[in-house]
Design a protein around this nucleic acid. Structure first.
Length: 277
DNA sequence: CGATTTTGACCGGCGC
DNA sequence: GCGCCGGTCAAAATCG
């Protein structure tokens, strides 16, 4: 990782190169120039010592930056490992059979943990999901409800949905609360999507940064006939580099943080200047 | 005002 | 043929 570029904080500071006369002039402009003549005199007599101190300070800050990046990498790695384990536990517990379709996307770990069981029929697949309210299953696709019926074997109404993400998409789903446990939604999917789910469309739209992926996304890429009986690791995409970038972006947008950081840097430089005089 | 949901009517398959 | 049942349609209502 290039630690000089990794945290692009976009500070409103001059590009400081302690070995450049121009930069020192810029420093003087930015932080106040009380006495140009005195400064020039000191520069001539104390240049070498100032440069040495600044060089040491730059090395120290560089090392500190490396340590911070290493810590961040470690935290990110731990987070990814924990996410993996949590999702893996949810998958083992759920004893998932079959699949939602050729390509399915669960929008979050929270949703995944709510999946209880799945079972397949001939062309359709059945999913049971615990939900809080409404017959809404967030499965990565956009649905339009076109009917609702109360069936004979279940007092809970069955809702009928069509995929509305593409006009020609033939996929339908039925969602109904379980007779045994009303907190469980039974969703039956029929057909095969002829387009990508919402999250992947979003990814495609983020042309400014193709690697950006803020959420952990679980992707299955399997034909409907293929079984999920054998335990299989879901593909989890966690991009630590993007997490670092996102943190940097967030911090750089915080005026109080950038002001405090700029103030700390300038204060440190001023302190160095005063101690070397 | 367009998109989505609701809901009663309608349709087709199936068993008797 | 009739009735039952699940699935779909489409107009009205509702939502954002």
């Amino acid at each position: 990782m290039n630690h000089h570029r990794s945290l692009d904080l976009n500070l409103d500071a001059v590009a400081i190169d302690p070995f450049s006369i121009n930069s020192r002039e810029a420093l003087a402009t930015k932080f106040g120039d009380e006495d140009d003549q005195e400064l020039q005199l000191k520069e001539k007599t104390e240049d070498s010592s100032i440069f040495e101190v600044l060089r040491a300070e730059l090395a120290r800050i560089t090392m500190e930056n490396k340590k911070l990046n290493a810590m961040l990498e470690s935290i990110t790695c731990d987070y990814a490992n924990l996410s993996n384990k949590m999702i893996d536990l949810a998958m083992r517990k759920s004893k998932i059979l079959g699949t939602l379709g050729h390509s399915n996307c669960v929008s979050s770990e929270e949703d995944l943990c709510k999946i209880v069981t799945k079972e397949t029929s001939t062309n359709a697949c059945k999913v049971q999901i615990c939900v809080d309210s409404n017959l809404v299953v967030r499965d990565g696709y956009q649905w339009r409800k076109y009917g609702q019926k109360v069936t004979k074997d279940n007092p809970n109404p069955r809702a009928y949905f069509k995929c509305s993400m593409a006009p020609s998409c033939p996929v339908k789903k039925k969602v109904q609360r379980s007779v045994k446990d009303a907190t469980i939604l039974v969703a039956t999917y029929e057909g095969k999507h002829n387009h990508n789910p919402l999250s992947q469309l979003d990814d495609n739209n983020n042309n400014d940064n193709n690697n950006r992926d803020d959420n952990a996304t679980i992707l299955y890429d399997r034909k409907p006939s293929e079984s999920l009986l054998e335990e299989e690791e879901p593909l989890i995409r966690l991009n630590s580099n993007n997490l670092v970038g996102e943190m940097a972006r967030t911090l750089s947008k915080d005026p109080s943080f950038t002001a405090a950081l700029a103030n700390a840097i300038s204060g440190r430089i001023m302190q160095l200047q005063s101690t070397t005089r």
